[in-house]
């Protein structure tokens, strides 16, 4: 009996990484995410710090997700092109995390003030998603209407980009869609100057 238990008891770190799909119940995730937000909310002083806190948690997830997904790929290679890593996030990462691709990946057409000042090329990209799964059950109170809990996802993207050596600032925004009552989520990716050198 005792030997039987020992045989089956494999330490969690000794188990192989599953290759295939592993699905998680949406409700379990929603409750966990809800608790993460409430936990973070108790530990901040001002409203905007919540986004930072969620983004920091996402960052830690992102660094790990990149390793895992590259490990699972059939012909793993290191992504060195800016567009390569962006489309990897838009399709592979979104598929692995949320089961579908993001709605769109665009280059921002508006040259923002910073770019005008430094006369560098525009380096802002947007990933938009109308039905962000992390926001499925979240209704924002009026006092926090500018908050988007997809900051967590923005953190994941930032984590991936940072560990792939494309340093960037990533933020999540609510954008109103014409004819729709609810806003869509836009993940704004602003690459740092050093990420663009030689590319």
């Amino acid at each position: 009996m005792a030997s039987n238990i020992n045989k089956n008891a494999v330490n969690i770190v000794d188990r192989p990484l599953p290759k295939g799909k592993t699905e998680i119940n949406l409700s379990s995730f929603a409750f966990l995410f809800s608790e993460i937000i409430q936990y973070s909310q108790d530990r901040i002083k001002a409203g905007h710090e919540l986004e930072k806190k969620l983004s920091d948690i996402g960052f830690l997830v992102g660094t790990r997700v990149l390793e895992l997904l590259v490990f699972r790929e059939k012909n793993p290679k290191r992504e060195t092109k800016l567009l390569g890593i962006l489309s990897f996030i838009h399709s592979n990462v979104w598929k692995a995390l949320f089961g579908k691709q993001a709605d769109s990946l665009e280059k921002s057409t508006e040259a923002d003030d910073e770019c005008k000042k430094t006369t560098t090329t525009n380096s802002t990209y947007m990933i938009s998603d109308a039905n962000m799964i992390v926001n499925k059950y979240i209704s924002l109170p009026k006092s926090l209407s500018s908050l988007n809990c997809a900051s967590f996802v923005a953190g994941i993207v930032e984590g991936i980009l940072s560990s792939a050596e494309f340093p960037a600032r990533v933020t999540a925004h609510n954008v109103a869609v014409e004819g729709k009552r609810f806003t869509k989520t836009v993940i704004l990716i602003k690459f740092n100057a050093e990420a663009l050198v030689g590319r």
Binding site: S27, E35, Q41, Y137, I138, S139, L140, C149, R181
Partner: peptide
């Protein structure tokens, strides 16, 4: 249970103000 209890901004036992739930 979906749109109120899984909303992190809802306080248990308090009045419900959730846009998604209303919708």
């Amino acid at each position: 249970t979906d749109y109120v209890l899984k909303n992190p901004f809802y306080e248990l036992e308090m009045s419900i103000r959730c846009d998604l739930f209303d919708d």
